[in-house]
Design a protein around this nucleic acid. Sequence first.
DNA 1: CAGCAGATTTAGGACCGACTAAACTTCTTG
DNA 2: CAAGAAGTTTAGTCGGTCCTAAATCTGCTG
Lengths: 247, 247
Amino acid sequence: MAKSWEGNSSSRSSPLSEAQEDYLKQVLLLGSGGEGMGRLQDTTVVSTQELANRMQVKPASVTGMLKKLSELGLVEYEAYRGVRLTEAGYKVALEVLRHHRLIEAYLHQALGYGWEEVHAEAEKLEHHISEAFEQRIAQWLGHPSHDPHGDAIPSASLELPQTNANRRLSALKTGESGMVARVATQDQDSLNLFAHLGLKPSAQVKVLEHLPQGSRVLIGNERYLLPVSLAQVLWISLEGDQQDEKV
Amino acid sequence: MAKSWEGNSSSRSSPLSEAQEDYLKQVLLLGSGGEGMGRLQDTTVVSTQELANRMQVKPASVTGMLKKLSELGLVEYEAYRGVRLTEAGYKVALEVLRHHRLIEAYLHQALGYGWEEVHAEAEKLEHHISEAFEQRIAQWLGHPSHDPHGDAIPSASLELPQTNANRRLSALKTGESGMVARVATQDQDSLNLFAHLGLKPSAQVKVLEHLPQGSRVLIGNERYLLPVSLAQVLWISLEGDQQDEKV
DNA sequence: CAGCAGATTTAGGACCGACTAAACTTCTTG
DNA sequence: CAAGAAGTTTAGTCGGTCCTAAATCTGCTG
């Protein structure tokens, strides 16, 4: 009976609280998925401060939660040195992420939400749906690989689909053009702005020039100056930069 | 500045907690809507004990919550004498009920849940959806007046549609038959059983005889003995007992 | 390598909603 | 109308998640 109850990753006795799930999700997002995306299996350590900013909470609160999560075996936490997900914690985080992104996709496709509106609603619902609900909407959607923002949706078995390696708009060279692959911000006002400009996944853009304040871009027939902070969260897949895995 | 911030019923400053909403809903359900249904505007007082049973909580916990709700002006509470919703509390309760029943209807019609499965999922979701979500699913459903159990859904303006006055199966006379109008239990096992027998809203039934242990009924070509406890939660609208308001 | 700024943790509370145990009402009934 | 019994409230705890204020650590700079 003294076999292996420690790494009993799957059969969590008491379900995690909403707050706990949120912390784990943010550790995942900040740790790796955060900006670079794609290949995870985190090695990156996340700081108390980063977490505090994301969670809109004081650093002291983060410390407390990290201790608890550490006791639960969901994170590796070393005082003053930051935190990292364990295998078990990684699974939980991916599960939450799957819920979030499936819900976003569902709200958009089944209920007609604008792609920029879905985030807030999904944020609330992600912790309250059953596995049955997850399965039904996944099926209704045809098991999509990406949500309306272009973020990869972990599969039912919690694998993250390979995302086309692409570049931030701010990193494109002058004259380069491509397709918006991902809009990586959760800020509602930024999303509204992108939506207004038609800068959603699959939209075409061309970089006209880079300036200190931002990048001048061409969308359709309109030209805009996109501030750096916005240009950085727009991931572009380049023309003829087909990374298709099997062709 | 000393105007009227007290009965500020609508613009609740801090949103109510999930628990608070649940208590209000249960006061409504037990107080009137509970069994009789229909005409509400409660006069009925609900006891601490009843609430404790429904909420799966100890009576002492109920007392504590009732005090809080009373301070918030959502219930009238008098120690040892029970509790009743105020106008403001009634509104909140109806709003929660509307969410619950719309969600049930949506899960059933849009996502293919069995009518007996929807309750549990709705119970969790009802507190976490936005008004936008409510509106979208109500619209998708075509603003239904009843949920899959036959319970009336409060309208957007929180009016409860008039329900056909009908009788419990246990109160039918021998030989009478009619249509199941409402299956008024939240017990999952009972629901499963009803679902298995095809005893869902709109199903036809005939009472063959009443016995001490229950009622013998005819459903399709099958005969069953329905225990009293089950026969009591089945509301039947009688043949030729058309109460249609306008015809 | 001392000292300092910034990041982090500790200590001590607050609030919520549950619990137990004990005290208190109210109702019923001889 | 005086018990009891049943129902209810009070008092004191607890775990969860947040907070502020005050220590403490880390890493950099001069």
